[in-house]
């Protein structure tokens, strides 16, 4: 009696999760293999095309435009946003700082806004002439051209800027948590040994926060690769002039849900997924090598 109750209970607890998980994660995952080998006209009619989707993808100029744009956005996130996030965390971690709670909350606040609403907020900010950025820059530096076309010529820079505003504080929270775990004794010992601020950061702090830095980098890459809402909404539901705002995710959306070819969308999904899995494996490999060193 008791034995059966104890054995049944975990399955009862797992039942809602497992049921929904199998139906809406495992099953679609299996279907996506098949779907990627088909062409569909809307969700109802399918036609078997074999590996044609993947062959077409390799020579599809739009896909490569999307991949290049996504790569540019990801690099911008990595090399602009993460150093700033780490810098803010280092500033906030200094002993004797007043108002730490206020600053932390302030920097974190934009990440609560949510991508679609960040895009709506940045639409007027990036506007020509009347927009906040151009109007301010023109007033501060009269040489600045108020007609500077953020959302026409410099789409990816604009998106990197919006993402920077939104996520810098979010990533800062992770860095700050890591910095607070760095042993104070270790830093003091280095200070006594005569290490200057840079040497202490380079040889004591950085190795200590490396695991979390790697984790944050991976999360940023994964998030940036799936970027959709920012450019889609900021560009009024288009890919922008000359597809400058087209991302892989937007191309997947357009192929699957505007054109109606779910098969091609699945093929794009697989290329995206395999790329991300490759990056994740590489990150784990690099992290392990770093730890063994």
């Amino acid at each position: 009696m008791k034995a059966t109750r104890l054995n049944l209970a975990p399955w009862l607890f797992l039942a809602p999760f497992l049921g929904i998980f199998c139906l809406f994660t495992v099953w679609p995952l299996l279907r996506s293999f098949i779907l990627a080998l088909q062409q569909t006209y809307g969700p109802g009619t399918t036609e078997w095309v074999g590996l044609h989707n993947f062959r077409y993808l390799l020579t599809d100029p739009l896909f490569w435009t999307a991949a290049a744009n996504t790569g540019r956005f990801t690099l911008g996130s990595l090399f602009v946003q993460l150093p700033i996030a780490l810098g803010l965390a280092l500033l906030l971690n200094r002993p004797g700082l007043r108002g730490r709670g206020f600053f932390r909350l302030t920097f974190f606040a934009p990440s609560l806004v949510g991508l679609p609403f960040v895009a709506m907020l940045f639409a007027p900010i990036l506007e020509k002439r009347t927009g906040l950025i151009n109007a301010t820059l023109h007033r501060l530096f009269p040489i600045w051209d108020p007609e500077f076309a953020w959302m026409q010529e410099y789409v990816m820079s604009s998106l990197i800027l919006a993402a920077l505003w939104m996520y810098a504080g979010f990533n800062m929270v992770y860095f700050l948590a890591a910095l607070q775990n760095v042993s104070k004794d270790l830093i003091e010992a280095a200070e006594i040994d005569g290490a200057n601020a840079w040497q202490r950061f380079r040889h004591v702090t950085l190795p200590e926060i490396a695991p979390i830095a790697g984790f944050v980098t991976l999360l940023s890459v994964i998030g940036s690769f799936q970027m959709f809402e920012l450019s889609y909404i900021l560009l009024n539901n288009t890919a922008g002039p000359e597809n400058r705002g087209l991302t892989i995710m937007m191309y997947l959306y357009q192929s699957g849900f505007v054109v109606g070819d779910l098969g091609y969308a699945s093929a794009i999904g697989w290329v995206l997924a395999l790329t991300l899995m490759g990056i994740a494996l590489f990150q784990r490999w690099a992290a392990r090598r770093y730890e063994e060193r």
Partner: peptide, 26 residues
């Protein structure tokens, strides 16, 4: 079950978009 959960952690959402849509249609 634990293995499946761990494996599912690395599935990116966009991959499931098209097949989930087809499933919801059906």
């Amino acid at each position: 079950v634990m293995g499946v959960v761990l494996a599912a952690l690395i599935i990116p959402g966009p991959l499931l978009l098209a097949p989930s849509f087809q499933l919801l249609y059906k």
